[in-house]
Design a protein around this nucleic acid. Structure first.
Ligand SMILES: [Mn+2]
Ligand SMILES: [Mn+2]
Ligand SMILES: [Mn+2]
Ligand SMILES: [Mn+2]
Lengths: 217, 217
DNA sequence: CTATATTTTTAGATTAATCTAAAAATATTA
DNA sequence: TAATATTTTTAGATTAATCTAAAAATATAG
């Protein structure tokens, strides 16, 4: 069995692989896990020994298929628990991440299988992220971030990239929820800000915000 | 914050106090937690330093009120999770203990408050054990074990003492569930075994089994 | 009340995960 | 490509939880 710590390293390496071609660097992992590079090196040696990562000193690491499978199952747990907390226990979407970080490590096949059924086999978590299947299949949803939109273009908001509670609270405050139809009505080339319309309201958002809102493609 | 390990020690000391007048001995704790006496001594020093136990070298330990409060809150978590697993996720009562041992340590006030509400404020867990309130109040249910019954005496089975999965499976197999009305119809003074009747069946049980079945008083 | 048995504590190691500081390797840039 | 900057690894400590073996304290029995 792998420790919570090992599982968190695998998850971090997996997440890195989603946005980068090359393997994750020691420093990138250290940053993601809020630890020091030297600690990461130690752990990489250990994970390599367990055949969970491909590690060559001084070069980045990638997951082996065994490592990837573990990472995906932890992510599955995480997202199912987030659905549980929001749908059943009335949590807000900005309150669930830290708790799910703990719950995800509880290992019980039956627990997850039955939780999945209890939740009616959800495919997306509260932040629009796809939930991997039991066999580690994960749907690749086609989407682009709002900053790439042209004027008058519109689409459905389906995913939020930054899921820090600060950002999520900002979105909630402005009624920007998953499923809302958004239309770009103005663009400011000066600072790349956008004016958007949705429901019955309008809002000016910074480029940074736009880059974190993903729209169905 | 206290580690999982510390919390388990506090729980063990609390449980010991339920059946014994004197403080828990180093050895009794070691046995309960499946560890060595020397490890227990180390931990007792640490808990004493944190003012969670009353510890005097070579004599037993008792919980301080702070320690007791923590123990009760962990037990509350444990029992609420057991109710969740049985009532919502269709687990059997003999499958939940180990999982609850892990879930009980997840610290979130809101999680437990909302889980409690979601479960409709249960007062008993699947094994008939009372669930402490948020403020650490725990109902003392009046009950006696079946071995003290006389012939023809009857009562409702409300609590099982030994909650090992082996014993629980034995009870399930014989349809002995919490809430069943049991009547003693024969006693064998030779080995203190009992013949009992309940629902539409009869069963001969050993003294050991009788001592683990508690009946409402 | 002394000798023996039992229990508890201490001493000294070990393992996992972490850190700081220094050394080594790789990457950049002029 | 050589100097410099950056990244990564190593060396050596630290902290929590555990262990074995030995010493010390307490309990028990004749
Ligand atoms: Mn999350
Ligand atoms: Mn999420
Ligand atoms: Mn239990
Ligand atoms: Mn129980």
């Amino acid at each position: 069995m792998n420790s919570f710590t090992e599982e968190n390293y695998l998850k971090a390496i997996y997440k890195f692989s989603l946005t980068h071609k090359k393997g994750a660097s020691t420093n990138s992992i250290a940053k993601a896990l809020n630890t020091k590079a030297s600690s990461v090196t130690d752990m990489l040696k250990k994970l390599a020994l367990k055949n969970l990562i491909n590690y060559k000193k001084y070069y980045g690491v990638t997951l082996t298929s065994k490592g990837k499978q573990i990472a995906l199952s932890i992510i599955r747990n995480h997202r199912l628990w987030e659905v549980f907390l929001v749908d059943k226990l009335n949590f807000n979407w900005d309150e669930v991440h830290e708790l799910a970080e703990e719950l995800e490590h509880i290992k019980s096949e039956k627990l997850i299988t039955n939780l999945d059924a209890f939740l009616n086999f959800p495919t997306l978590d509260p932040h629009g992220d796809p939930i991997p299947t039991k066999n580690g299949k994960i749907k690749n949803i086609k989407m682009i971030d709002l900053s790439q939109f042209k004027i008058n273009q519109e689409g459905v908001f389906i995913h939020v990239k930054d899921s820090s509670d600060k950002f999520l609270k900002y979105l909630s405050k402005n009624n920007l929820e998953i499923g809302v139809k958004i239309k770009v009505i103005e663009m400011e080339s000066f600072d790349n800000s956008f004016k958007i319309a949705y429901n019955n309201q309008q809002l000016i958002i910074s480029e940074n915000v736009a880059k974190n809102l993903y729209i169905k493609n």
